[in-house]
């Protein structure tokens, strides 16, 4: 019995220590974000890698999700003669929830993995040590540009995803469900409020921060060899995905409860 309790205690302590390390890493990232030197070129590169190159995957995800959402709402709404709500629900569903969450998850899959693998490989090949010996702080040179770029780019990706998702719903609604084109667009935008869009974009910024932070954290703490980098990559994607879903609930509670 005592051994069981000791085991549980050790597990809880280890989990709390892990959370503490991540929080300290996040605080250090924020601190380095505010103090020079700033590596503008690395930031620009990160914007292209994280933002621009994620556009196709986020766009395709949004397009198919918007289309599927329209079909689902139409078929569900038909049970109580509420087919007309399709444009409104697709728009609200996309901008409030599915745009940021699915966009965030797709970016997590694409970006957290690549950041963790890149930084992890740099660590095992002593490139991080080399940076230090060349008087360059790895947090400032590697972490800050990526985290900042993701925090600023993911909301833009979410915004683009929202538009494409609504367009997916529009295409399905007008071509398969018999909606009039003008009526669909009017219903979409008449009921959409500013806060619906803004809340989704704020979620996107938080998800972007978490995705890049997890990629950098696990990369910097990667174990030795190919196996260590593989583990770091997997852990970064899992942690980023879980944190996106958990923080999505918390943010939704904060933004929309009561």
């Amino acid at each position: 019995m005592l051994r069981l309790l000791a085991g549980i205690g050790a597990g809880v302590l280890a989990a709390l220590a892990a959370v503490g390390r991540v929080v300290l890493f996040a605080l250090a990232t924020l601190r380095h974000m505010l103090t020079p030197p700033f590596y503008v070129k690395e930031y620009g590169q990160a914007v292209i890698n994280i933002g621009y190159f994620s556009l196709p995957v986020v766009g395709l995800t949004a397009l198919f999700t918007g289309g599927a959402l329209a079909l689902q709402i139409y078929s569900g709404g038909a049970r109580f003669n509420a087919e007309a709500v399709v444009p409104t629900i697709v728009a609200i569903g996309m901008v409030r929830e599915l745009g940021p969450v699915l966009g965030g998850l797709m970016v997590a899959a694409r970006v957290a993995s690549s950041i963790a693998a890149e930084i992890g490989t740099m660590k095992v090949t002593e490139q991080i040590d080399a940076l230090v010996t060349l008087s360059t702080h790895p947090m400032k040179y590697l972490t800050v540009p990526r985290v900042l770029a993701a925090t600023l780019c993911v909301p833009v990706l979410v915004g683009v995803g929202d538009i494409i998702g609504i367009m997916g719903g529009y295409l399905v609604g007008t071509s398969r469900l018999g909606f009039n084109s003008n009526a669909y667009l009017t219903n979409t935008f008449d009921f959409l409020e500013f806060w619906d869009v803004a809340s989704g974009l704020i979620k996107g910024a938080v998800f972007g921060f978490l995705v890049a932070l997890m990629g950098c954290y696990y990369g910097m703490n990667s174990g030795r060899g190919a196996q260590g980098v593989g583990r770091a990559t997997k852990a970064a994607v899992v942690a980023a995905s879980v944190l996106i879903l958990a923080s999505n609930y918390i943010l939704t509670e904060v933004f929309f409860s009561a």
Binding site: T121, T125, E126, V132, T133, L134
Partner: peptide, 20 residues
Amino acid sequence: PRDAFLARFGMLFQGGALFD
């Protein structure tokens, strides 16, 4: 001070540690 201290050193790493 770290920056000034490290500026006095050069290091050749085992695997080169060149930035890919």
